[in-house]
């Protein structure tokens, strides 16, 4: 009967398994609340890149800063740094398919003075969709896929123009420093800002928060915001919040449910009922989302803000 002592087990280096070289954490990527800088958030979710699980296979942690209402991505491995700039999987395009959302955004822009130039920032599908909508209304529109303050020298003027209004669609959560990026817009001359962003306090988020919420979009987003965090964000960036409302996005329910079912090994016939626009799932999701929106917990936040630099100078007496 072969018996080995513990010391022999430890000393026998030939037995040690081959382990791939460990990766360093990426030193530049902060793992903290983008508003207060604290990094003592509570872990609220562990998720994966559900759109591409085969290729990545990594898991991601979401930590929640209860003080600010910001959730942030835990430290990813170096292989995933830069993934936030991959734009293939954002949901903005789907969001803007909803007529009510488009109408609301149009109203936000045109209810006041007619803007001369609008900059739409978001992934290509979202930006072009919204740009088309505005162009129909005789508004000059430019689109920009990402805000990258480092490459533009702190100015968002992709075509040498100044913009009256910036519409930022789901971009704020993908920026390493959203406060600075939005402030850059203000410094670039944008007097109004419309921020469209997933609601981390939405009913759909609360139900699927632990893992499957479609708004996570791992690993392409770094931050998620509750309504109070959006208020603080725009305020820090030099804007004054004019209105903040939640809008309906039933696809957050269906897509999250689809992820949940797929992840838990549900039969494809069941999971696929939530994949596309199956009538039953859409009706159910619309009903749930309508109820949530009525109670102020809709899936998407739309914040309309005005630059504080645009405020009229008080008349001296």
């Amino acid at each position: 009967m072969p018996i080995l002592k513990r010391e022999e087990l430890i000393e026998d280096a030939a037995w040690t398994l081959d382990v791939p070289a460990p990766e360093r954490s990426h030193p530049a990527l902060r793992q903290a609340c983008c508003l207060c800088g604290e990094d003592e958030g509570e872990p609220v979710a562990v998720g994966e890149d559900f759109d591409d699980r085969e290729r990545r296979g990594d898991s991601f942690l979401v930590l929640h800063c209860r003080a600010c209402g910001v959730a942030y991505l835990g430290r990813p491995s170096s292989g995933h740094v830069g993934a936030a700039n991959e734009g293939a999987h954002t949901n903005a395009g789907a969001l803007l398919r909803h007529r009510r959302t488009r109408t609301l955004l149009g109203r936000e822009l045109q209810g006041r003075s007619v803007p001369a130039r609008v900059l739409v920032i978001g992934d290509a599908a979202a930006a072009s969709s919204f740009a088309t909508l505005l162009s129909e209304r005789k508004v000059a529109v430019d689109t920009l896929e990402h805000i990258d303050p480092s490459s533009t020298g702190g100015r968002i003027e992709p075509r040498g123009s100044r913009y009256d209004v910036a519409v930022v669609i789901e971009e704020a959560g993908r920026l390493e420093d959203p406060v600075e990026a939005l402030a850059t817009l203000g410094r670039g001359g944008c007097t109004r800002l419309v921020l469209v962003i997933d609601n981390f306090d939405a009913r759909s988020c609360r139900v699927f928060r632990g893992r499957h919420w479609v708004g996570y979009d791992f690993p392409r987003r770094l931050f998620w915001f509750e309504p109070r965090a959006v208020r603080a964000l725009v305020n820090r960036a030099g804007f004054e919040l004019e209105s903040l409302r939640t809008v309906s996005a039933p696809d957050r329910w269906t897509r999250s449910t689809h992820r949940f079912l797929r992840d838990w090994g549900a039969p494809p016939w069941l999971a696929n009922r939530f994949a596309g626009r199956a009538l039953g799932a859409t009706v159910l999701a619309s009903a749930l989302e309508a109820l949530a929106t009525l109670s102020g917990a809709g899936s998407v936040l739309v914040a309309t803000c005005r630059s504080r630099a645009d405020e009229p100078t008080p008349v001296s007496t």
Partner: peptide
């Protein structure tokens, strides 16, 4: 046979926090 020294309970949350999720 693979030998561990005693039982070790590692969760996907710990693996993600440390940054080794893809290796588990």
């Amino acid at each position: 046979f693979v030998h561990d020294f005693g039982a070790h309970f590692i969760t996907n949350r710990l693996a993600a926090a440390i940054g080794v999720g893809s290796r588990c």
